[in-house]
């Protein structure tokens, strides 16, 4: 399974990102008074800052109370969530949490964070003339990075068991050169907004997930 594709220009800015199949993680649980999670009530959202249980982790956002969705600290019927959760009469209460999706701003931030890591990896190398990070594995995903001769980086975040991602990266590079670089309205280093590129990438990823590397 492919989770996402990122393209970073040679100066380190994110020029394209695409979420492919990011699983939605939601946990619903009924709580009794007092609430054993510590929540942070900020203006935009309510998130867990301390305590984790039954699949609810620190950083998860509160999205619904008793099936009524939460919008910027208040329920849809106008009640304030903070006041409601502090009142014992409202318990037991059913809360639904979800792992927040990354916003575009966070993606831009992360893409520019990868750039120095890539450079430091080659500086701290014990062997001469090492490249930067090509594969980075964590317990939940594997990030594959392909840097072209011109310094553009293609990154694919996939499941750890996914094979053939190196070939997929080359294919994405092909699409990039066909539909972005040959597009007369596209200027280098600028965010990539080409419909043809989007649709072809979507097709490529779909067929890759269905049939593996053989058919692309």
């Amino acid at each position: 399974m492919i989770y996402g594709v990122y393209i970073v220009s040679k100066s380190g800015g994110l020029i394209f990102h695409h979420d492919h199949s990011v699983p939605r993680i939601e946990t619903e649980k009924t709580f009794s008074f007092p609430l054993d999670l510590k929540l942070d009530f900020s203006k935009k959202c309510i998130s867990v800052i301390f305590g984790q249980r039954d699949g609810i982790y620190v950083g998860h956002h509160l999205i619904a109370v008793n099936g009524i969705s939460v919008n910027s600290g208040a329920l849809e019927d106008g009640r304030n969530v903070k006041e409601m959760l502090e009142n014992e009469e409202n318990y037991p209460v059913n809360l639904r949490f979800c792992r927040p999706r990354m916003t575009t701003n966070e993606k831009i931030f992360l893409a520019s964070m990868f750039y120095p890591l890539f450079a430091i990896a080659s500086q701290l190398s014990p062997e001469p003339k090492s490249s930067g990070i090509e594969i980075l594995e964590a317990d939940t995903f594997k990030l594959h990075c392909f840097q072209t001769l011109t310094g553009v980086k293609f990154m694919v975040v996939a499941e750890p068991i996914q094979t053939g991602v190196e070939i997929l990266l080359k294919k994405i590079y092909e699409l990039y050169s066909d539909y972005a670089l040959k597009n007369p309205f596209y200027s280098l280093e600028q965010p990539l907004r080409c419909e043809l590129f989007d649709t072809n990438l979507q097709q490529l990823l779909d067929s890759f997930e269905k049939t593996g590397i053989t058919n692309i």
């Binding site: 990896a121 080659s122 190398s125 014990p126 062997e127 001469p128 003339k129 090492s130 490249s131 930067g132 990070i133 090509e134 594969i135 980075l136 594995e137 964590a138 317990d139």
Partner: peptide, 10 residues
């Protein structure tokens, strides 16, 4: 979390 990274040399 993070387990390892690879470059072409190490």
């Amino acid at each position: 979390g993070f387990l390892y990274y690879k470059t072409d040399k190490y």
